[in-house]
Amino acid sequence: MMASDVDMVEKRLSDGQESCQREMVFPPLVLPNDVQTIPQLAQYVDEICEAVGFDQSLVMQMNLALEEAVVNVMNYAYPADVGGDLRVDAQCSRGQLIFIITDKGIPFDPTEKEMVDTTLSAEERPIGGLGIFLVDQLMDSVVYQRVDGRNVLTLSKKLDSTKR
């Protein structure tokens, strides 16, 4: 996101959360499938969350959900060693902050993954599989669609969300 875009968004959202009851579209972020670019995603999510008036805890939660969902795409959408982009769109609509993650990789529905058993002991606990579980826990809704050869994952969080 360009600095000027952020300024513009912040100006339009100067009233904080109330302004966001209107329909609002933020500039998109495009990233290569390289996890070293995650700090750029974090900056993007921080700016949007702060613009809509989310508190520090919610900003952390949105960062975590977006990182997990995006890393999942970076790791699985494209064959190893093949470059590919993903795009993150963000908008406020009907009292919700919505993030849409799109890639042109192989069809992959992360919502079909098995849920994690959080009651297992350290010995039994598998080392992976927490990412998508966290996305599901942190967002109010997670919807996968395959549209025109693209994976489209839509993450929504109510703007009046309270600290959990």
Partner: peptide, 30 residues
């Protein structure tokens, strides 16, 4: 994030069979 949680869990998985206790300290509420 989960990549970090995985590392913490891995430390625990190495330590526990040797009877080593692993403590977490200073975590904020988030």
């Amino acid at each position: 994030s989960s990549s970090g949680l995985r590392l913490f869990l891995s430390v625990l998985k190495h330590a526990k069979p040797k009877g080593i206790h692993v403590f977490l300290t200073g975590m904020n509420a988030d």
